[in-house]
Write a protein that binds this DNA or RNA. Structure first.
Length: 291
DNA sequence: CACTTGACCTGTCCGC
DNA sequence: TGCGGACAGGTCAAGT
């Protein structure tokens, strides 16, 4: 599930919901989801206040006053849902379909705050993980040395994009965009959407791209990611924000899951093929292969 | 070096 | 209705 816009949407939500709250208890229902010893929990997590929420790439970090941070990777099906116990069953609650059912069978870890509110880590496929790490390690960019630049920062420009991609001139553009060490935060949905907007075929080799192609791709990535954040991300199956609500980006998607439908730009039928090991959606007419 | 496959897991959908 | 296989937003490691 979550790519950059989804993790960012969760971050924004948690920032509003849990900063200043104190964690009073942790219940680990699936050991592999959060491998941590009792001493660390006691010394660095329980009775500690949440002071900051951060994101880098698809990784979410909750900083605690203990100078330790909860670190999350949601992988395909992870959810982080905050529930205020006092209002969850209130009449007219907009999220009763999910929130009122938690915990459910995919709940792996439950954090309880001293005011009674809870944060549920749900993860149907159990690929996601939580770690408890010293905050200063996370603030050191060495921790993220296997991640490329954040595509939405001011310093990220089209030269930087070209430079990063040209580290792999002989690979297909889709594979390189999915590679977190090139650009951080893109996944299958936004790579397909960005390539469509930039009118680039996912199998084009990086070395075949011209400066104008990099420029269009740069703009496309930023447009697509910003639009998705504005729309609260994409909900395909599992994704929800920190309040259990779905994102609406896919209602406006141009190619993702649109195979068999007409391309919004030229009307040709959108195809789906396995490329770079992933289901890939593109328009065969306005996205031509370059090799 | 680049690509493919399998692994990690659970759930759903589709064809027989 | 049941069963087997393919597939799903993400990363790893190992094999070709």
């Amino acid at each position: 599930m979550p790519e950059l816009p989804e993790v960012e949407t969760i971050r924004i939500g948690l920032q509003r919901l849990i900063i200043g709250l104190t964690i009073s208890n942790v219940k680990i229902k699936n050991q592999k989801s959060f491998i941590v010893d009792k001493i660390s929990l006691t010394n660095f997590l329980v009775d500690k206040k949440v002071i900051n929420i951060k994101r880098r790439a698809k990784i979410l970090m909750i900083d605690l006053e203990s100078k330790y941070s909860l670190v999350f990777h949601l992988k395909m099906t992870g959810q982080l849902v905050f529930v205020n116990q006092k209002t969850r069953f209130a009449a007219g609650h907009p999220n009763d379909s999910l929130i009122n059912k938690l915990p459910d069978k995919s709940t792996r870890v439950i954090f309880t705050f001293s005011n009674g509110a809870r944060l549920y880590f749900n993860d149907q496929r159990k690929f996601g993980w939580i770690k408890l790490l010293p905050t200063n390690i996370l603030n050191d960019e060495n921790f993220f040395s296997h991640h490329g630049p954040e595509p939405l920062t001011i310093s990220f420009n089209e030269n930087e994009l070209k430079k990063q991609l040209m580290n792999h001139p002989n690979r297909q553009i889709k594979a390189v965009l999915l590679d977190q060490s090139s650009i951080a935060g893109l996944g299958n949905i936004y790579v397909d959407e960005s390539l469509w907007l930039a009118e680039l075929h996912p199998q084009s080799l990086v070395k075949s791209l011209k400066n104008e192609d990099f420029a269009r791709l740069y703009n496309s990535i930023r447009i697509v990611l910003n639009k998705s954040i504005k729309l609260g991300g994409s909900t395909d199956k599992n994704y929800v924000n920190a309040e259990g609500q779905k994102g609406s980006y896919l209602q406006f998607a141009n190619v993702f899951r649109k195979n068999g439908q007409p391309c919004p730009r030229c009307g040709s039928v959108i195809l789906k093929q396995k490329i770079s090991g992933r289901g890939t959606h593109f328009c065969p007419n306005c996205q031509k292969v370059k090799k």
